[in-house]
Design a protein around this nucleic acid. Structure first.
Length: 221
DNA sequence: ATCCCGAGGG
DNA sequence: CCCTCTGGAT
């Protein structure tokens, strides 16, 4: 029924409901500084935030800033982050990113998308998280595995490429709400619309969801 | 398209 | 066993 309204209006209704459902939604990663958020976000690739938060206290205690990561024994970083997976790539990226931050940015995390994208292991997803939560700059829509899955199921995009999904979402949502959309939809992805077996009966967005409507039509046949 | 990678759930 | 978790580089 409500699927007949425009996609843009549907996106706004989805956003409104999500904000009511998760009024306190924030970045779930633990950090104290922009650099720590950058490192935590690199670590969060294909890994739950909860698991990242289990390794970062010891990691940030041992390596509190970009300078210490830059001159670290990489093996020591690998051991401290091992349980987050992809530990060799992540350790290499964290160290190379920190070396560049020290050499090119005076040891401070840069505050523009263009500069962030020059860092090892940083693409738009990580850059959007850092810009929004460390600096309050809403540059784009964070598209992670949850945003990708839910945006597809809800019918807000048919694209699979994260950059193209972001372009579609940017057209559908008011700019100040871009990060609120990402954060709240991630909460919803974890709680209700999970990858394996989405709980459509408990979902407040079912009346706005093309995936749910398609499932209903299958049952009727 | 494929690789990197461990931990937890079903 | 298989799939998934706030991806990115080759």
């Amino acid at each position: 029924m409500n699927l007949r309204i425009s996609k843009k209006k549907r996106a706004f209704e989805i956003l409104t409901i999500l904000k009511q459902l998760y009024p306190d939604a924030t970045c779930s990663l633990d950090y104290q500084t922009p650099l720590q958020l950058l490192v935590a976000t690199i670590l969060s690739a294909q890994c739950t935030d909860e698991r990242v938060n289990k390794v970062t206290p010891a990691l940030f205690s041992r390596f509190p800033d970009a300078q210490s990561f830059a001159k670290a024994d990489r093996k020591e970083i690998e051991i401290l982050i091992h349980s987050t997976g992809f530990y060799r790539n992540k350790a290499k990226n964290i160290q190379n990113a920190c070396i560049k931050i020290v050499n090119d940015f005076n040891g401070n995390v840069p505050q523009t998308m263009t500069e962030l994208l020059t860092l090892a292991g940083v693409a738009r997803k990580t850059a959007n998280v850092v810009l929004a939560h460390a600096f309050g700059i809403i540059e784009g829509v964070t598209v992670d595995t949850h945003v990708k899955r839910l945006s597809n199921r809800l019918g807000l995009t048919k694209k699979q490429n994260p950059v193209q999904i972001e372009q579609d979402l940017i057209k559908l949502l008011p700019q100040p709400e871009w990060e609120n959309f990402s954060i709240s939809i991630i909460y919803h992805g974890r709680a209700i619309c999970n990858a394996r077996k989405p709980l459509c009966h408990q979902c407040s967005l079912a009346h706005l969801c093309t995936f749910f409507q398609t499932e209903q039509n299958k049952i009727k046949e």
